[in-house]
Design a protein around this nucleic acid. Structure first.
Lengths: 145, 145
DNA sequence: TTTTATTACTTGCAAATTGAAAGTAAAAAA
DNA sequence: TTTTTTACTTTCAATTTGCAAGTAATAAAA
């Protein structure tokens, strides 16, 4: 399959993959909100359109950012989970959170900021590892059912 | 002016401001490539359309992410520079760079990766500060002409 | 076992965003 | 004074996002 990039810049290339309106939101919903099924995503506060979600999940799977599985006990529901490539976006998402904390409150008052954000700020790398570790456990637990 | 956000999530809110196709690219061009005029942006490898660039610069200025000035010796050219709100996106951009280094090479071989990226990885916070310091000096020098 | 409800999408069309190309006007440069 | 350059704007086209209805497979309920 042919991938189309604007140039050889790493930042622009990253954005050519996850820089659309919904990709990072879906990844955030998986990583921080534990969402893993089509219905989970549809029911999120952001309310993504079903045709957009479908297209986006296919694209993220195609890039190896997420993977799709089914439980032996359930032939219907797809379980979408992040791969390493996917949860390696944790630092990007955390830095966006911190940026919003300091710079977006004035435009969107009452942001839902995690109460542990100060701990995160004090030791970002440790926080990244903890979040990823938690996600891996979560992933194991939902695929074990 | 009314701002429209999808919800109260800090990540989604950040993306509601800078999550379009071009905003982070323009910010990256200012921060890392020293671009500051309309012509500079137009001449970048990414080749943004003029009507989109115009709209995007207005929006970024409106959110206080960039500011516009003119030199006393030049009534024509607008000088666009990052405010603190703007260059505080440095960590987001650096994390996108690192993500690309490890996860995007296979899709876009031959990425232009900075040779100092290993130093950056070793001490991210220090690298962020250095980049911001460098940008501030650059900003002072282009506004002093 | 049958019926109903739910989930996971697809489809068709509309709205919004992005973009190409031409044009305009002010200012700088020649 | 003339020409070139820059900074956009405008118009229309292409692409992306989104609404709403529909479909089919499967799970759940009766």
């Amino acid at each position: 399959m042919k991938y189309s990039f604007r140039c050889k810049c790493p930042i622009t290339s990253a954005l050519d993959i996850v820089g659309d309106k919904w990709s990072l939101v879906v990844i955030k919903q998986m990583l921080f909100e534990g969402r893993s099924t089509f219905k989970d995503f549809i029911d999120s506060p952001e309310a993504i359109a079903t045709n957009i979600l479908s297209t986006r999940l296919k694209m993220l799977e195609n890039f190896g950012i997420i993977e799709k599985a089914k439980l032996p006990t359930n032939k219907k529901t797809n379980i979408y989970t992040l791969t390493e490539k996917g949860f390696s976006l944790t630092p990007v998402l955390i830095e966006l959170t911190l940026w919003s904390k300091y710079h977006i409150q004035e435009f969107n008052p009452g942001l839902n900021l995690d109460k542990d954000l100060e701990k995160v700020e004090k030791n970002k790398e440790e926080a990244f590892e903890l979040i990823i570790e938690n996600y891996k456990k979560h992933k194991q637990s939902i695929l074990k059912k």
